[in-house]
Amino acid sequence: MLKKITEGPAGYMPQSAPSMGVELAPEGQALLYGNIVSEEEAMRDAARALLTRDNPTIFPGPQVLWDWKDDVADKAAAILELASEIPNCKIIPMPDYRPKYPKIDVKAEINPNHPNLTILDNRIKASIFVGVHCHYANLSLRMIRAGTDCYTIALCAYMGHEEAMASIRDLHASTIHKFKEIVIEERNKLGIEWEPTLPPENPSLQKEDHAALSPSDYGEYRSLIMTRKGEHVTEVE
């Protein structure tokens, strides 16, 4: 198979997949490396990537993280089942699309405006995007292809994503179950032994104790809180 869309890094501002001639898969089919294939073929390749590459991670987005519609609970349960069948799989959420300044807690979340930071810091080589609104998924997937060597899988409730290595469309909880079964099959074929285990909890950073901060904690930004020459800041707000 000619791979039109592969793992990156493709370099800063790569040509977009649609402009390279990749079209979305029709109903009932899927995309694999930019080619239209059967859903099963795409799922098998994606499963092998998740099983053989380092630090497989699922990135759920707002459409499954927030409790806003009746069917999200089923999808969420299915995602957790899938995660527990992938050895050492983590879940890092994308709850919020607002850009994060001055820095993001890369262990705790991923952000569509700079998704590469979370991928690079955690050395993630295979990932699943699920429940991310399409325009933000496109943005993230292309940035990840530009700047990292991560294999990306889009599980999309709508028409799928050209920028992902593997893209499944019209996702329901049953589709996730099917994917899970394929993961188990491929895992057995590869001879990997694994007991279903839920991914670890979110390792959010502790809240900063402002009372214990000193200007040096602000690193290169300390000049901002020390505006006058000779003035020493002992207390910070």
């Binding site: 993280l65 927030w66 879940i91 890092i92 959420p93 979110n202 950073l205």
Partner: peptide, 13 residues
Amino acid sequence: INPEFKDIMPREI
């Protein structure tokens, strides 16, 4: 928050 995902959500959320 979807209860299934409560423990993987960042603390601030």
